[in-house]
């Protein structure tokens, strides 16, 4: 609530501090960046290389269909047999649980997911997050 001048404070606002500042970069693609479209297919190889270079990577996309497509593309090019999984809200609960457990056990190198995995994921040793497309807000 906005506080009226002179009135007693109705509540304290606590701002958390002291956390390590995040390191956020933009992929500087060596491919030709398209003028339109949201698939980021041009960056497939680079996304794959990032997954390969890290222990566990979460790859966030904005829609379920995009998650399916990206997962399929990565799967097709997965010559190293990296353990890459898929997680979104239209998948069967048992399937989602399987992915979650495998991730918690550190058996997955990459998970392509929608916002299905953005809240409350404090298990699994995720060392990199990739966000496909522009983030639609600073907080979420």
């Amino acid at each position: 609530m906005p506080q009226r001048d002179g009135a007693g404070e109705a509540a304290d606002i606590v701002v958390a501090g002291g956390a390590a500042a995040p390191i956020v970069e933009m992929l500087d693609t060596s491919e030709r960046l398209p003028w339109a479209g949201h698939t980021a297919r041009h960056a497939l190889n680079e996304i794959y290389d990032l997954i390969k270079a890290n222990k566990t990577t979460l790859v966030f996309v904005n829609t379920r269909s995009q998650a399916e497509m990206l997962f399929q593309d990565l799967w097709r090019m997965n010559d190293d047999g990296l353990a890459i999984a898929l997680h979104h809200g239209s998948l069967d609960v048992a399937q989602r649980r399987k992915v979650r457990d495998a991730m918690a056990a550190g058996r997955l190198r990459g998970v392509v997911c929608t916002s299905s995995l953005d809240l409350g994921v404090d298990w699994g040793d995720v060392d990199l997050v990739i966000n496909i497309g522009a983030p639609k807000g600073a907080s979420r």
Binding site: G18, A19, A20, A21, P22, I23, V24, E25, M26, L27, T29, L33, P34, G37, H38, T39, A40, A43, E46, I47, L50, L58, L117, D118, V121, D122, V126, D127, L128, V129, I130, N131, I132, G133, A134, P135
Partner: peptide, 17 residues
């Protein structure tokens, strides 16, 4: 979600489409 600990920096790469 990356390095989900308060004293470790999260690392992220944004991929514009």
């Amino acid at each position: 979600r990356a390095n989900h600990r308060i004293d470790e920096a999260s690392r992220a790469v944004l991929v514009p489409a």
